[in-house]
Design a protein around this nucleic acid. Structure first.
Lengths: 225, 225
DNA sequence: GCAGCCTCCGGATCGATGTTCCAGTCACTA
DNA sequence: TAGTGACTGGAACATCGATCCGGAGGCTGC
């Protein structure tokens, strides 16, 4: 009774929604999506599992908040005349980097993303495209195309971790090799490429999209590099 | 005892892995991914839930098989000189149609897809690109780019169902409108577009990608439409 | 000083789920 | 007829998300 730490004691910062989400991201990074449990999360926070429900309504809320939190890592290019193409390239590359840094996030993209961090970056994307003089229907196509491209890329890379030691990769490689008569092209130029090749591949595809977007601008911008 | 239906009776075809997967797809189509339970699935099949585990090792197996099964709906363009561009366009559009017809599938794309139906279509994609004369690194970029683009598109559309009556859409629209000062571009040209606009948007982005791929071929092909 | 209220905590518990154990049933074969 | 192997399913277990409810602690108004 007497020795019980005072509530505002220094032994642990008070539980808060931010601290929960922060720890959730750490747990997701360390152990993956399927290991995230309300009980395990509470344990890491040094509280009971049911306490979390005071700060958060459901587990999905935690996931939504965690997903939005990592989007804050995507740097929004500062204003300045580097041109729309450089700005968008930076944004998309930053977005991709975050997806790769937090592989669990790719699987969560299938839920409405309406957090402030996500919206701020979408806003920047739309605003930059508008400034570049892109009009409908190319505007929607551009915004969707770029988003879909990054999302798909992140999902794909999360599915096929680049680490060549992974069992999944090994098994897939063997399976393709064993059936190389049925899938000759796949077995020869298979989709299991190294990390660097993925990066150049991503950049190439992004270039194609940007070229297409640029060509659809009526009054051509000239000041991009 | 006497009235018990004979095993080979006509009241129900014998349980088999195919029948399980078939019913799983039907259940997923009807009620979505989170309503798929081994018990519910067994109930629809008129058996006990534990019986399924004789034909299938885990629930994930059912999902993998279901995902591969719907890929059989994607028609592989028949041989014939329509040109690589028309063939790939047909394949990608068919792929997208399947993703939209089975919205639950988009969320499952984050698992290794090594079923025969998936591989056959990937093989066609690679083979067609090879025939078109595309070489590395453009080959990988093209295959990945196209796949990522469709996957992202499917995931996005599954997240934001086109049905305007959906609460999610309504809520999102209101939320954007309420914060239109912070997100002016989003609120004005928001990403919540109608179905037709998404189709034209998808086609536009696909054209950009294909243009980029085509431009990267050293010896230019001329026979495409 | 004290009653009342609000914020925050957590043990016990509920219902649902994926999966395993094991005792069966049935058709078919030696 | 005994036995084997393919299948079935009831009972049970561990785990999960979520809720109920009783409490602790601090603050305010009287």
């Amino acid at each position: 009774m007497w020795l019980r730490p005072s509530r505002a004691g220094r032994d642990a910062p008070p539980l808060s929604r931010d601290r929960i989400v922060e720890e959730a991201v750490a747990l997701l990074d360390a152990e993956g999506a399927d290991r995230l449990t309300m009980r395990r999360l509470a344990e890491r926070l040094g509280t009971g599992s049911t306490t979390l429900y005071w700060h958060v309504k459901t587990k999905d809320d935690v996931l939504d908040l965690a997903l939005d939190m990592i989007f804050a890592e995507v740097e929004i290019p500062p204003e300045g005349g580097r041109g729309w193409r450089a700005d968008i390239t930076a944004l998309i590359n930053g977005w991709r980097a975050v997806l790769l840094r937090h592989p669990w996030s790719a699987a969560l993209l299938g839920r409405p993303m309406l957090g402030p961090n996500v919206l701020a970056r979408s806003e920047f994307l739309y605003a930059t495209l508008l400034e570049a003089g892109i009009t409908e229907p190319h505007l929607t196509a551009a915004a969707y195309g770029l988003s879909n491209y990054v999302i798909g890329s992140g999902l794909m890379q999360a599915t096929w971790p680049a680490d060549d030691e992974q069992e999944v990769r090994q098994a897939a490689r063997e399976h393709l090799h064993a059936n190389r008569e049925r899938y000759p092209a796949l077995a020869a130029h298979g989709p299991l490429v190294a990390d660097d090749d993925r990066d150049t591949g991503f950049t190439l595809g992004l270039t194609w999209l940007l070229d297409g977007i640029q060509a659809s601008v009526t009054n051509v911008m000239t000041e991009y590099t």
